[in-house]
Computed example of a mutant assay.
Amino acid sequence: MAASDDKLLKKFSALLLENDMDEIIACRLRSTMTKAWSLEGNLKFVEAGKNTFLLVFELLVDKRKVWYGAPWSFNRNLFALNHFEANVSSNSWTFPHSEFWVQVNGIPLEYYSEKAALTLAAKLGEPIPVDSFNPSKWSKYI
């Protein structure tokens, strides 16, 4: 793999779904997310447009940690990620979907089953399998 290819692998395009983000919020975003991710290497936020950033990771392991730890939020807004594509203008970057958890409260106990959870999830989008399905660990929600 060429060195330039390696650099491309360490990048994300990112969008914060927040109205009217100013410089103070952008600074807080950088600081908060860097701390939340507890990265081993350095991270650079490059502003690429309105509420849009290029994230440049020093280490590929850090990029993977952030990608597989998603979804992320900041200031009660989704922080969407997508893999960076070379030779594509930041105006053309798209963020077509984001995986996230949904908590449903007030479900009657007789519906605490994998089948019911998948049926509910299908109403919201495409359900994503999880490592374990253990209703005994649930409380008031699935």
Rank of each mutant, 00 (worst) to 15 (best):
M33D: 01
K65F: 06
E114D: 13
F57L: 12
F74N: 03
F84N: 02
F53N: 05
S113R: 05
P96M: 05
A116E: 08
A80Q: 09
E110F: 00
V88D: 01
M33F: 03
T94V: 13
F45E: 12
N51W: 00
L39I: 12
G49W: 12
H83C: 05
Y111S: 05
K63R: 15
Y112P: 08
Q103M: 04
Q103N: 08
R76W: 13
A36I: 01
L78G: 00
E99D: 09
P71K: 05
S90M: 04
F53Q: 04
R76Q: 15
N105H: 05
W37N: 10
V61W: 01
E110M: 01
L118T: 13
E47K: 14
P71N: 10
F45T: 09
F95T: 03
Y68A: 08
S98F: 14
N105P: 00
F79P: 01
A48T: 04
S92N: 14
K63C: 07
G69T: 06
R76F: 13
I107C: 00
L109S: 07
E85L: 09
W37A: 08
A70P: 05
N51T: 05
L59S: 04
E85R: 12
L78E: 01
S31K: 14
Y68L: 14
S89Y: 07
S89M: 09
N91V: 02
N77Q: 14
V46R: 15
W72T: 06
E99V: 10
A36C: 09
E114G: 10
H97L: 00
N87F: 11
N91W: 00
L81Q: 12
D62E: 10
L109P: 07
K35F: 03
L54C: 14
